[in-house]
Amino acid sequence: MNLERLPNEEKLTLCRKYYLGGFALLPFLWLVNVVWFFKEAFLKPPFTEQTQIKTYVKRSALGLLFWVTVLTTWITIYQHFRAQWGEVGDYLSFTIPLGTP
């Protein structure tokens, strides 16, 4: 979809949909929202809906940041301690590479 061709109201609806959709444990929607609407929110000349779009994009970015931190921390902990956890580590894993503790 080309944002250029969309009227401003629809941009706002779309941005809100993506923002709300992100709460369903879908951080990638927030990522898309941030990347997609960044230009509209911060670089375009002002228009009525821009302030709202700005808020949504900011909040999406915040949520995204939260997810990134949580996931990075978890992945680091998991990779580091999987072997030590033994049984629990194995049950948490989807694939266990052959021949590694």
């Binding site: 033994g86 049984e87 694939t95 052959l98 503790p101």
Partner: peptide, 27 residues
């Protein structure tokens, strides 16, 4: 001569029985 099993028998027998894993390889 790459060996699939590692650590000890409890570990490898457990990995034999984990069935939801992608690769259903016995180790």
């Amino acid at each position: 001569s790459h060996m699939s099993a590692v650590t000890s028998t409890p570990t490898c027998m457990r990995r034999n029985s984990i069935s939801f894993s992608m690769s259903n390889d016995m180790v």
